[in-house]
């Protein structure tokens, strides 16, 4: 039993690492091979893309050539791929031409903000979707008028269909800019507009205060479909699964039938959905950071894309991929804990 479980974990780990490898190769294709095959000099990515000034063109091109030489961009492709992989997996992302700083320094400054938003909203959407899903399913199955189901499900479907960008702007304008219930940006929250320097618990509380609007927005738009998924699954399990009927026939008490048999089986597809949602949360966090002036890797990546800061883009793409795969790997564990068929490789 133990050996099989360990084999399962190692199998999933290898699987996730292969996925990461494919993603890295994909970014090599997008950021190096394609531009180069179109005749673009990759050295520009590393010195920054600027207009050639007729007077200094000579010097600029020399710098580009020097960069290509320094980063080995003219080496044979297999060697470059190996180097590309080595650099990413050892976190050597190079220098950002726009920030004039190592990419790792830039990222480590902004990444934590993004991770807080994504991770916390992943947890809040999960908790809310399960609680409202259970409330709705119970009401659907047990109550006559199903009012609890109607309330919980309409709330969820409504929240899911609210245009996130629109709601974000409304929240920012009304709750932050007009009512001042929330800070207008992270800097204002932490520094009081440059007048204070908060420390200790107060610092974290004010950080949380600034992070709450973006988290609330991501939560509102992110829990609805998972609530519907778990609600429908529970109802389906409860009504038609043979083991639920059998559990009732054996005289098990209602909460055992509901939670131990119907709910736990209904949870499995929901866990798969959490994995899919992580990727969408990463998209979501890009514009949420912009709306709420919450400086995270989303803003930085968007700016890097518009200013062609390729080393920064490669670095942030890589770290986002790693984050998603770590979450997926964690979910593999959850799935294996819930379902012995996965753990024991049926």
């Amino acid at each position: 039993m133990f050996v099989v479980t360990v084999r399962f974990i190692i199998g999933r780990l290898i699987n996730r690492l292969i996925t990461l490898l494919m993603l890295v190769l994909f970014s090599f294709l997008v950021f190096e091979l394609i531009p180069q095959s179109l005749g673009f000099k990759l050295g520009f990515f590393f010195v920054g893309i600027t207009q050639l000034n007729p007077k200094t063109a000579q010097a600029q091109l020399a710098a580009v050539d020097a960069a290509e030489q320094a980063y080995g961009l003219n080496a044979p492709i297999p060697i470059r791929i190996a180097k590309f992989l080595y650099n990413l997996f050892t976190l050597h992302f190079g220098m950002s031409p726009t920030y004039k700083e190592p990419v790792l320094t830039v990222i480590s400054q902004y990444l934590p903000n993004t991770l807080v938003l994504v991770t916390v909203s992943l947890v809040t959407t999960s908790v809310i979707s399960i609680v409202l899903g259970v409330v709705a399913a119970k009401s659907f199955l047990k109550s006559r008028w199903k009012i609890g189901d109607k309330a919980a499900s309409l709330t969820s479907i409504g929240a899911y269909f609210i245009p996130a960008f629109w709601l974000g702007i409304i929240m920012y304008v009304v709750l932050a800019a007009q009512l001042h219930w929330f800070p207008i940006n992270l800097f204002f929250a932490l520094r009081g507009g440059g007048l204070h320097n908060y420390t200790g618990v107060e610092y974290y509380l004010r950080y949380l205060w600034a992070a709450s609007l973006p988290i609330i927005l991501l939560t509102i738009v992110g829990f609805g479909h998972r609530q519907q998924l778990i609600r429908n699954n529970i109802i389906e399990e409860y009504n038609s699964a043979g083991y639920v009927m059998y559990a009732r026939a054996r005289g098990l008490d209602e909460s055992t039938v509901f939670y131990r048999h119907a709910f736990r089986n209904a949870l499995l597809p929901w866990v798969t959905q959490v994995g899919l949602d992580v990727a969408f949360l990463i998209y979501g966090v890009f514009f949420v950071e912009i709306i709420f002036q919450f400086p995270g890797l989303g803003i930085v990546t968007t700016e890097a894309a518009t200013s062609f800061d390729i080393p920064l883009l490669i670095g942030s793409t890589f770290l986002f991929s790693v984050y998603i795969l770590v979450v997926l790997f964690a979910l593999d564990f959850v799935y294996a804990l819930l379902d012995p068929r996965v753990r024991l490789g049926e």
């Binding site: 059998y246 054996r250 131990r260 048999h261």
Partner: peptide, 26 residues
Amino acid sequence: SQLNREVRWRVISYVPQASQNALDPL
């Protein structure tokens, strides 16, 4: 709950069809 306490399994038990997957796979 009265059925659970007084009737089901103590007085009447039930063997469902094997094809109904009556045993919970988890």
